[in-house]
């Protein structure tokens, strides 16, 4: 067995450079399920969850830079919960308290599951991910990092270092549908964030597309129906908005849900998120 506990990002870089087949272990809550269920038989592992700079977050101008090993619990309960509320809302829905105590934001991205609950929030917020290797750093968008179902553009010698999340002043919403009231894998989720300064609404969908996906047509469509001063939306726009959100999905049928339900649900979530942020206005 070969096991390394990295103490710095430089050490991770050199360990990966030395042997890129070494696997990264962050919180371990996905990694170990694969090991326990025999989908992974690790032979060389680098644990990165004790690297101090990866466990911290800081204000960085108009954004927060969140180290990849910051846990869901810290995002759910700490000061970040007021800075990026939708991220905290999504963190609260992930797994059990035990899992949230140890699972990390970087792990959620690295696993790249379509049901990864933080992914739609980060995508809607236009978060950028700093990818690090011995050759230096590069910044990518969420949808450039995650390219498909459990597929990323990470090279073997790269790891996720920091997630830079813009701080928006407007209301944010994350809604997730699962058959259980807690500790459930999402069958459809939706993040909506607003930027009153730019007067933009961003919407991203979870569990209804293979790779992270924005509902851009719905975003553009609704622009014309919003009153940013009164924070209202024309009620006449709702049916088409809901339809456009639903149409942005391309879900699959599986043992968790039918595609038809997922499409339906994500449309409902879109409308509900919108109406939590913007009051419905009857234009007569």
């Amino acid at each position: 067995m070969e096991f390394h506990i990295a103490s710095s990002t430089e050490e991770i870089c050199s360990l990966l450079a030395e042997d890129p087949t070494r696997e990264i272990l962050a919180g371990g809550t996905d990694f170990m399920v694969e090991v326990n269920f025999r989908q992974k038989d690790p032979s060389a592992v680098i644990a990165i969850d004790r690297v101090p700079e990866l466990k911290q977050w800081r204000h960085d101008g108009d954004a927060v830079s969140i180290g990849s090993c910051v846990t869901y619990r810290e995002i759910e309960r700490g000061p970040l919960s007021t800075i990026v509320p939708a991220l905290a809302q999504s963190a609260r829905t992930v797994g059990s308290p035990q899992i949230r105590n140890i699972a990390t934001i970087g792990g959620n991205l690295g696993t790249a599951s379509p049901a990864g609950d933080m992914i739609p929030v980060l995508l809607a917020l236009d978060a950028r991910v700093t990818i690090r290797s011995i050759n230096g750093s590069r910044d990518v968008a969420i949808d450039d990092l995650i390219t498909g179902v459990k597929e990323t553009s990470l090279a073997d010698n790269e790891f996720i270092e920091v997630i830079k999340v813009p701080i928006l002043k407007g209301p944010q919403e994350f809604l997730k549908v699962g058959p259980r009231n807690a500790m459930v894998i999402s069958i459809a989720s939706l993040a909506m964030v607003t930027d009153p300064e730019q007067t933009t609404v961003a919407i991203a969908l979870g569990s209804v597309t293979a790779a992270p996906s924005r509902a851009r047509e719905a975003e553009e469509y609704i622009q014309g129906f919003l009153d940013w001063d009164a924070m209202t939306v024309s009620s006449s726009a709702l049916p088409d908005f809901r339809r456009l959100v639903a149409e942005a999905s391309s879900p699959i049928n599986d043992h968790r849900s039918s595609a038809a339900y997922r499409t339906h649900a994500v449309g409902v979530l879109g409308q509900r998120a919108l109406l939590r942020i913007f009051e419905s206005r009857d234009d007569g």
Binding site: Q89, T93, L175, K176, V177, G178, N181, V184, R272
Partner: peptide, 8 residues
């Protein structure tokens, strides 16, 4: 919906 905050 519980913690999923789906339902008003």
């Amino acid at each position: 919906g519980g913690t999923g905050r789906t339902t008003d």
